[in-house]
Computed example of a mutant assay.
Amino acid sequence: MSIKQTQYLSKTVSDLKPSGIRRFFDLAANMEGVISLGVGEPDFVTSWAVREACILSLEQGYTSYTANAGLIELRREISNYLKRSFSVEYSPESEILVTVGASQALDLALRAIINPGDEIIIVEPTFVSYAPIVTLAGGVPVPIHTNSKDEFKLRPEQIEHVITDKTKAILICSPNNPTGSVLSKEELVEISHIVEKYNLLVISDEIYAELSYDQPYTSFASIEKMFDQTILISGFSKGFAMTGWRLGFVCGPGEILQAMLKIHQYTMMCAPTMAQHAAIEALRGGMQDVEAMKKSYRQRRNFFVNSLTEIGLPCYTPGGAFYAFPSIENTGMTSEEFAENLLLEEKVAVVPGNVFGESGEGYVRCSYASSIEQLQEAIKRMGRFMEKRK
């Protein structure tokens, strides 16, 4: 008699939906000549100086575990970087933890603060992993819907409408994935008043902090009175073009960091040693490369967003990250229909907006982290696709 293996699975895991992004990546992977605007990673190679620092660390035999919290040299560089770039000062000894990507940092933060049934407010459209990670930690994700009219920005009154006695924290991502929306300092201050009033935590995902194009970036932790109520999450994947290195970090008040460290000790031990050595070099000498990438992304953004509007896909100008989030409502198709038809007919891969939550329906996410030549060809194909629907 055969045994159904599903009987052994956690109900929580069984009920999780697989990532909606993966289906389109898998479709595109089996087709030739596809231009992918779906992948959320830089098209730049990690700078040579950073790669060389990694190679040197291997040659010198640095292949053992580091301290659980990460190399103290790296934590000091992270502290210095945050202080000079965003006016936020964390103790390298007790308030910074090096993680395996920002994703692990987010997982640790949620598991460290959530009791069963605690509610975590997330802002839709939202990165695909936020709600599932909240659920896996035993919490309840509570979505707030935003829209293009407001540039997908969170409004303070929206927070008050969903707060209950079970609300523990708000998860904010600015610059945002998938919309590219950036919250200004003034807007963050308004949110901070609600946070203070209801004594909430803010988990601030700042992985795209280096990629803010039209205004200086403001870290939520730098807002007055918010340092002790903020868990700051970031890493090296986006701004430093180090996605495959899997290196992130989380900063916050000492007691919360120590709780995260306990989980990290039991589940991960430490982040990859050679990646940590590379990251030290990235922070010490890699800012010119970051600025060069940022300049290139800004130029691509301007071309791509203007071109989308010209071919009949209205798109507000995103302030950061490397995503455009155009409306496809005038086509009469759902987000999934649009993405699938565009892929099959013109071999351009985009991500349907509904995978980022209900408020993403009617939009698609396009990454402009591709060469200008590829973006030009993608616009040409998308324009042809739209012409057929007139």
Rank of each mutant, 00 (worst) to 15 (best):
D289C: 03
T46I: 12
V142W: 03
G33N: 13
I194D: 11
S79H: 04
A241R: 02
K390W: 00
E361V: 02
G235D: 09
N176H: 04
L16F: 00
L283A: 11
L37T: 03
R22S: 12
R84D: 12
I35N: 09
N177V: 08
A131Q: 06
E336F: 06
A29S: 15
D43K: 06
F25S: 10
S335E: 08
Q374C: 07
M293I: 11
R389P: 06
M274S: 14
C251E: 04
E95T: 05
L56W: 06
R51K: 15
D165S: 14
Q158E: 13
Y297E: 06
K149S: 11
T179I: 04
P175M: 06
G320W: 04
K149R: 13
Y8I: 05
D150Q: 13
R155N: 07
C270M: 04
S212I: 06
F249T: 06
I144G: 13
G33R: 04
D150K: 13
M382T: 11
L344M: 12
A28H: 03
L74I: 06
A28K: 05
E52F: 13
A324D: 02
S79T: 04
L200W: 08
A67C: 00
N302H: 10
L247V: 09
S148Y: 08
D289R: 07
C366W: 05
V13R: 14
S129R: 08
C366E: 03
S181L: 01
L106V: 08
I191F: 11
N341R: 15
T66W: 04
L16V: 00
P326L: 10
R51Y: 05
G239C: 10
Q288V: 08
T66I: 02
P216Q: 03
Q60R: 15
I159W: 04
E32L: 04
N147R: 10
Q265A: 09
V290N: 10
V305M: 05
V34G: 10
A109H: 02
Q258H: 12
Y130N: 09
G248T: 03
S148E: 15
K11R: 06
G138Y: 01
V195E: 03
Y368L: 05
K388N: 08
N177Q: 07
I122V: 15
S212A: 15
V202G: 12
L97I: 13
A221T: 07
N199V: 00
S87Y: 12
S94W: 00
T12D: 09
I3T: 09
R298K: 14
A321R: 03
V348E: 02
E346V: 00
T267Q: 14
S204Y: 15
K262H: 08
Y323K: 00
E187V: 01
P42Y: 03
T317F: 07
Q158I: 00
V364I: 15
P18F: 05
S371T: 15
I21Q: 08
Y130M: 10
E59L: 14
I223F: 09
T179Q: 10
I280G: 01
M382V: 14
S296I: 03
S14Y: 12
E59K: 13
E41N: 11
D228V: 00
C315N: 14
S10D: 14
R381D: 03
A28R: 02
I379V: 14
G360S: 06
I78G: 11
T331N: 12
K262C: 00
S64T: 10
S335M: 09
E206R: 02
P92F: 07
K347N: 13
E206D: 14
K4F: 05
E281P: 01
Y323W: 11
R389S: 03
A324H: 04
V98R: 07
T309F: 02
